[in-house]
């Protein structure tokens, strides 16, 4: 009896948690189907009288969302691939190679993880402007080609691979390069998938940085593009939420398919992205 109560209690808590997590999404979808007056009605309504699917069409007409979408895809894929490549090489160096100052360098890099991202915005902006990269794709991509979080996560995984596997690969005629790409990376598949997904989501949702370093419409990414619905005359919430729904769909799909890896990757390192 006591056990049954515990199980019920556990599920009640989980269900409450799930509701709290889902609330913003449900509110977003609900709002996206409302008429303009309904969105500001008090008390708020959850189910609109008429489902305004036309909001979705109107939202896409409001701004060049196709262009934004392409920008987001380009920026996200290039930063993810680039970051993964540099991180895999760095993680290999930190886990397997011996070089002068390795540990000190590692500690310094680790220290950079403690600095809040917001603090880096101004120095990064200054650097980019001196390189004449402000308002280019370079500004959106180059600063994100290295991530110590990814290096650290991969290093932990690489280090858990036994030395004997490395020696066996050496005996089998593999160079360090071959060992890295033919043995170590495939073995670390689940961690690599996890950091990839985290990076894709982070990059896709990035708002502050693209907003600051770009000012032409051609370079806007989706999250920045959502501003189109905010004007001096106020915000058109129904259209904004309709567009937002489009923006997050790819990420939701990605998460649903890869959640196993994401959870495994995060719980292994004890870090969140």
């Amino acid at each position: 009896m006591k056990r049954k109560t515990a199980i019920i209690l556990r599920y009640v808590i989980l269900i409450l948690g799930a509701i709290i997590m889902l609330m913003p999404f449900l509110w977003m979808i609900s709002t996206s189907l409302k008429t303009q007056p309904e969105t500001v009605k008090i008390p708020p309504i959850w189910i609109p009288k008429h489902l305004m699917f036309s909001n979705y069409v109107d939202a896409l007409k409001e701004a060049p969302f196709f262009r934004y979408f392409i920008n987001s895809v380009v920026v996200t894929s290039l930063t993810t691939v680039g970051q993964l490549f540099t991180s895999i090489l760095a993680a290999f160096a930190f886990s397997r190679l011996n070089f002068y100052g390795k540990n000190i360098l590692f500690v310094i890099f680790l220290g950079t993880m403690m600095v809040p991202g917001e603090m880096l915005i101004i120095p990064n902006f200054v650097t980019l402007s001196q390189l004449h990269l402000v308002n280019t794709y370079g500004a959106l991509i180059i600063p994100w080609l290295a991530s110590f979080f990814t290096v650290f996560t991969l290093r932990q995984t690489f280090q858990s691979v036994p030395d004997q596997i490395y020696y066996a690969a050496k005996i089998d005629g593999a160079s360090d390069w071959h060992y890295l790409w033919h043995v170590l990376v495939p073995i670390s598949k689940s961690t690599i998938t996890a950091v990839t997904v985290l990076q894709v989501i982070g990059s896709w949702n990035a708002f502050m940085w693209p907003l600051i370093v770009t000012n032409t419409e051609n370079l806007r990414t989706l999250p920045v593009g959502l501003q189109a619905f905010t004007s001096d005359a106020g915000t058109n919430y129904a259209l904004l939420m309709a567009a937002s729904t489009f923006v997050i769909i790819p990420m939701v799909v990605l998460y649903v398919f890869l959640q196993k890896y994401i959870i495994a990757g995060i719980s292994k390192t004890g870090l969140k992205g």
Partner: peptide, 21 residues
């Protein structure tokens, strides 16, 4: 010469097979 050049075969105590293959 390193392990690559000496062309020896080796079996390790814990076999060290590649788990992904």
């Amino acid at each position: 010469q390193d392990a690559l050049q000496r062309k020896v075969g080796m079996v390790f105590q814990n076999y060290a097979l590649y788990p992904h293959l």
